[in-house]
Write a protein that binds this DNA or RNA. Structure first.
Length: 567
RNA sequence: CGGGGCGUAGCGUAGCUUGGUAGCGCGCUUGGUUCGGGACCAAGAGGUCGUGGGUUCAAAUCCCACCGCCCCGACCA
């Protein structure tokens, strides 16, 4: 490609809309432009990168035995009703109407469609295992799109769906995808970590997320340097400091005027450490109040609560709801002698004794509470948010917390959809079973931006070779057609092109600094600088983006470039 | 949806408090000088000041409503 023929609108200044570095670079390097919030136009250079990533994904999916299909983005709402997600996915479903006023949904994902397909085609165990994938545009009515391509209303996703006859076989399919994902991100030049992921209401199943460590990430992962345990904080467990278990006697009510928080009670004249308090939270779970008990110094992890409750339909109670449930206002809440409400307690509190908690009477608390003796706990679970520095639950080494961008997710689904759609097969004995399903997603557009977020310097993007829009940028400093510099550039351009190298020739009549800055902003892996000065010495300049500049002999230039590209 | 910020030329912005002919930088056009790290000089083009209403002799500026964008939070199948 000749630069003068291309469309690469680079910007010296950053548009005000961009906050994070990768978003700024996407715009400045002329890769994308915004149409409106959450919707972006991929410009030629950005599209080239996207296609590269897609191709890597495609190759690795094929290698793992998955079969490419293309499903409609537009879907009938009936299948969403059939799976039950018409309601549960309300928040993210885009809907449209046709001329006859019939409603349609724009697919945020395709479990319903692929399972409908399988329901019609699957009959025998001999047809399994199968794994179908597609690379396609998805639509999600994001509550708040942000950070450019990171969270958009419309984005390119690779989604795959595996079907197996047994749990063991499904596990193999899962592992194949897990391994393929590791290769995909590696080939994209991304450092990722695979972390255990929360599975929401489908608790107990298996899931991993592929995370790109980045401070701008919307997720947080907990990980252990020693044993390599890694999990999304929504899922992560850790060991808490020990809880007091020696009883101090019978509960004793005492006045605590004005005390409204755990923190208030730690201060004089009370001086009760947070770890010796029981925090009582009231949630409205499917319209009914439920008490949640945490140790005073711990925080509730709502993702874990979802797992324990088996529903995501809950919210913190309003003040009036709390008063009507416990006859006291927040600040003096407790679970002692509460018999009529479900009480979920964090397992850290197991055996806790001599604790302080609200008395369910405004301005009063109870001390010397032994949870086993004084509180009726309905269910014990791990409900605690893991914190940095807490011992790893596997090996005891302090956990570290790291923000990260989720670029891939592998998920063992089980039979939720295959049962709903009757996607069943007959086994060797003629018994009918629903196929066991897995689903696997990669945010392709998000991956593009994640690469930029992870690979840049003060001058711009540093594209990993495999996903670079062009591998080589030829930069002649004199573009007069009859100049020796330009003639050499043309020769190299032709020679590299003939070898299948993706090369862009910066034939713009611009000053050297301008052209250098542009090529660095965009981040081509290799730049070959051709100028009168070096040519006089029989040399050209080979510059590796983010690396050193080396003079090479003109007659060796082609070989040296090819050599660099092999790496 | 709650909280905060912003909307002035393609981009970045000043002007708004205290109403009075809309300014600067980048980019763009033309000419000239330059030419190894985002050049310089000169001359130009380019603006419904987000939209609608109100106050006023007069509104970018004050008031009301709406729209859009960005950030934080809720949400995240």
């Amino acid at each position: 490609m000749r630069w003068s023929q291309a469309f690469i609108p680079t910007l010296k200044e950053t548009p005000a809309e961009a906050e994070i570095l990768s978003h700024k670079l996407l715009l400045r390097a002329g890769l994308v432009r915004k149409l409106t919030g959450g919707l972006y136009i991929l410009l030629p250079l950005g599209l080239r990168v996207l296609r590269k990533i897609e191709q890597i994904v495609r190759e690795e999916m094929n290698r793992a035995g998955a079969l490419e299909v293309l499903m409609p983005a537009l879907q009938p709402p009936e299948i969403w009703q059939q799976s039950g997600r018409y309601q549960t996915a309300q928040g993210v479903l885009f809907k449209a109407r046709d001329h006859a006023k019939k409603e349609w949904v724009l697919g945020p994902t395709h479990e319903e469609v692929i399972t409908t397909l399988l329901a019609g085609e699957l009959s025998s165990y001999r047809q399994l295992p199968k794994n179908f994938y597609q690379i396609q545009t998805k639509f999600r009515d994001e509550i708040r799109p942000r950070f450019g391509l990171m969270r958009a209303k419309e984005f390119v996703m690779k989604d795959a769906y595996s079907f197996d006859t047994t749990d063991e076989a499904a596990q193999i399919s899962y592992q194949k995808m897990y391994d393929a994902y590791a290769r995909i991100f590696q080939r994209c030049g991304l450092k990722t970590m695979a972390v255990e992921a929360d599975t929401g209401v489908m608790a107990g199943k298996f899931s991993h997320e592929f995370m790109v460590p980045a401070e701008t990430g919307e997720n947080e992962v907990a990980w252990c340097e020693q044993c390599h345990y890694a999990a999304n904080v929504e899922k992560a467990s850790s060991r808490a400091t020990p809880t007091e278990t020696a009883s101090g006697g019978n509960p004793e009510k005492f006045a605590t005027p004005g005390v409204a928080t755990i923190d208030d009670l730690t201060r004089p004249p009370f001086g009760v450490p947070a770890c010796r308090q029981i925090k009582t939270l009231v949630y409205i779970v499917e319209n009914k109040p439920v008490l949640i008990l945490m140790r005073g110094d711990h925080q509730l992890n709502e993702a874990k609560l979802t797992g324990t409750l088996g529903t995501a339909t809950f919210r913190p109670a309003e003040a009036e709801e709390i008063v009507s449930a416990l006859k006291a206002r927040p600040g003096s809440l407790g679970a002692v002698d509460v018999k009529e409400l479900p009480v979920h307690a964090d397992e850290t509190l197991h055996g806790a004794a001599n604790m302080t908690t609200g008395a369910n009477e405004d301005g009063f608390h109870l001390r010397q509470v032994d949870i086993g003796r004084d509180i009726t706990v309905t269910k014990w679970s791990d409900l605690r948010l893991a914190r940095a520095g807490e011992p790893c639950s596997k090996c005891g080494h302090p956990l570290r917390l790291q923000r990260a961008i989720e670029v891939g997710h592998v998920f063992k689904l089980g039979t939720k959809y295959t049962e709903a759609f009757n996607a069943c097969f007959l086994d060797e004995a003629g018994q009918k079973h629903p196929a066991i399903m897995g689903c696997y997603g990669i945010g392709v557009t998000r991956t593009l931006q994640a690469v930029i977020e992870q690979s840049n310097d003060k001058d711009g993007i540093i594209w990993p070779l495999n996903v670079a829009p062009y591998a080589v940028c030829l930069t002649p400093l004199n573009v007069a057609p009859d100049s020796a510099v330009m003639k050499l550039a043309e020769d190299l351009y032709a020679a590299l092109s003939a070898r299948g190298v993706e090369v862009i020739l910066d034939d713009r009549d611009e000053r050297p600094g301008f052209k250098f800055k542009d090529s660095e902003l965009i981040g081509f892996p290799i730049r070959v600088g051709l100028g009168e000065k070096s040519l006089a010495k029989g040399e050209v300049e080979l510059k590796v983006r983010g690396g050193a500049l080396t003079p090479v002999k003109v007659e060796e230039a082609l070989e040296k470039v090819l050599e660099r590209l092999k790496l």
